[in-house]
Design a protein around this nucleic acid. Structure first.
Lengths: 302, 302
DNA sequence: CTGATGTCATACATTTATGTATAGCATCTA
DNA sequence: TAGATGCTATACATAAATGTATGACATCAG
């Protein structure tokens, strides 16, 4: 460890870890394979440890390299955030703003809101990361996030935009075939659509209706869109956001006494409030989602 | 923004921001002044904004540059953490572990604990950041922290090591001159030693004894060591950690009904538990501070 | 005022890093 | 089996970044 290695080596390291080969990493980085190889060599020498076992069909990361991956990911997301913060003038609403939201919100609710925003500010570039994975490390850190959990960190500008209500729904074609459940216990004899992994949705549901805990799903996916399409195709019964269900007349509410509410926040780091593009995006999301939670939905086509 | 700038430019940017001149930054980085200047030039071109207003007695950062500083600091601390994670073999207890603690704990309590640890593991290098400033951004992020607030983040390995008790103390030379206060209200006619800024100490004290809120200190410093030396020199009355006070026979406890307790945690990121040096340091801190909180103090000389 | 020390900017030489081209080996498909 | 495609490793030429030396200006102490 004679002197600190170049920070660029960390970027190269991350690319190699992500792509699994020097050549692929080189293509991604806009470098060449020998250069990437030299970066890894230099890094290995600096830290005094083997990072990859070389083979002719690619590189296999060692434990040491895997330990470094989360650090390199943090570096990448911070560097990306720095670049976003630096780009775009401080007066105009221009440059890139990156938003993180759940899959459902990101795919169904945000697009119309963001469409209006971009119509107003043509120079604004929006990156939208729609994912239910909590540990969003692979993704570039977002400037603004729509969250279903109360923000814990300090130095965050958070706005509570109300509660989103979920109810049980089924497509009418399913009801024709299987009938309606009359009680919660009755759900056990129905086909239920559910999640693979525990998401914020599930956690709050199980908290509220413990009898749902042991229930077995006959259709599972960890992809929210798949679940919703399964619901719309009449595969079974699923929780669904009530404002969204209004858009589809063929979806029928079941057991109206079952209702789960999810608190929703818009969260932004405090020091971004001086950035015009983050400010206007934040405000647009707040007003748009307040409307959505109230039931004043603005569907896609409008 | 033709292509992403070199991450090394961010390191250079941070150095220039911290030192205030190209030359000083160059000395710090082990580069030369023209190189540092070229890095800044290239970065300005990449982000399309002026970062510094050049003058012959140094560089004045623009608002744009100041916005980027926290990002660059995060990059620096992450890069340092990566390097620490990479260095040192995975079997032996070697390499550097960085610990963050309050000033009092760091200066008075930890050294004997760490001395024992380093005697056991001669190849272990310890970095100790003793500071009461909460936003420890300038510092390199620590591997292990001794905290007085309940850890909020997830993915943290936290161990509660008990409560540290604080009482009011004065040096006997002070008592000879001013006598002892008999009631809490009586404190108002005494000389009190206190803090400039609100620390975890103060907050929990005021919470418990609201009558202390409006009290005026006749001696203030935001440096804990200064305060303790002021106490030992007989300048006035101050809160002091009871286990520490036992070491100095000339310190007398006043108003024994006044006692404030501070919960204490040792906190480490979960993914460091595979690192032997972090593991053994964590364990040593836990046992050492459990002993300390119980009153089984292990003073410096022993 | 004068010299010492600090700063940034520029011109030029050199070192360093990178790209190109190629060889060697594995894997898969026809 | 032959050929295409994937990968890494090496040798060599080139391009790029860095260092050296120097000049111009500002600030402070004597």
């Amino acid at each position: 460890m004679t002197s600190e290695p170049s920070w660029d080596f960390y970027r190269t390291l991350l690319a190699v870890l992500e792509h699994g080969s020097l050549s692929a990493a080189a293509r991604d980085l806009g470098l060449t394979q020998p250069t990437v190889g030299r970066h890894i060599d230099a890094l290995e020498q600096s830290v005094g440890a083997e990072l990859f076992t070389r083979s002719q069909q690619g590189l296999l990361p060692t434990d040491a390299a895997l330990v470094l991956k989360p650090y390199a990911e943090t570096l990448a997301s911070t560097a990306a955030a720095l670049l976003r913060a630096a780009t775009g003038s401080r007066e105009k609403v221009s440059g890139t703003v990156r938003i993180s939201a759940s899959e459902v919100i990101g795919t169904e609710v945000l697009p119309p809101i963001l469409a209006g925003l971009q119509a107003q500010y043509p120079e604004l570039i929006v990156e939208l990361s729609a994912s239910d994975i909590v540990e969003d490390l692979l993704q570039r850190e977002a400037d603004i996030a729509v969250r279903m959990v109360a923000p814990a960190q300090e130095a965050l500008l958070a706005r509570h935009v109300g509660v989103i209500s979920l109810g049980l729904f089924a497509h009418e074609s399913y009801i024709e075939r299987h009938g309606k459940p009359e009680t919660i216990a009755d759900l056990r004899r129905h086909k239920l659509i559910g999640f693979d992994r525990q998401t914020a949705y599930i956690r709050s549901m199980v908290k509220r209706y413990p009898m749902l805990d042991g229930i077995s799903f006959s259709f599972r996916s960890d992809h929210s869109i798949v679940l919703h399409n399964a619901l719309r195709s009449g595969i079974g019964i699923s929780f669904y956001q009530i404002p969204l269900a209004k858009r589809d007349a063929n979806l029928q509410r079941l057991l109206p006494e079952v209702e789960v509410t999810i608190d929703t926040w818009i969260v932004m780091h405090e020091n971004l409030k001086t950035s015009p593009r983050c400010r206007v995006t934040f405000d647009a999301l707040v007003t748009g989602l307040l409307d959505y939670a109230k039931g004043n939905d603005t569907p896609e086509g409008q």
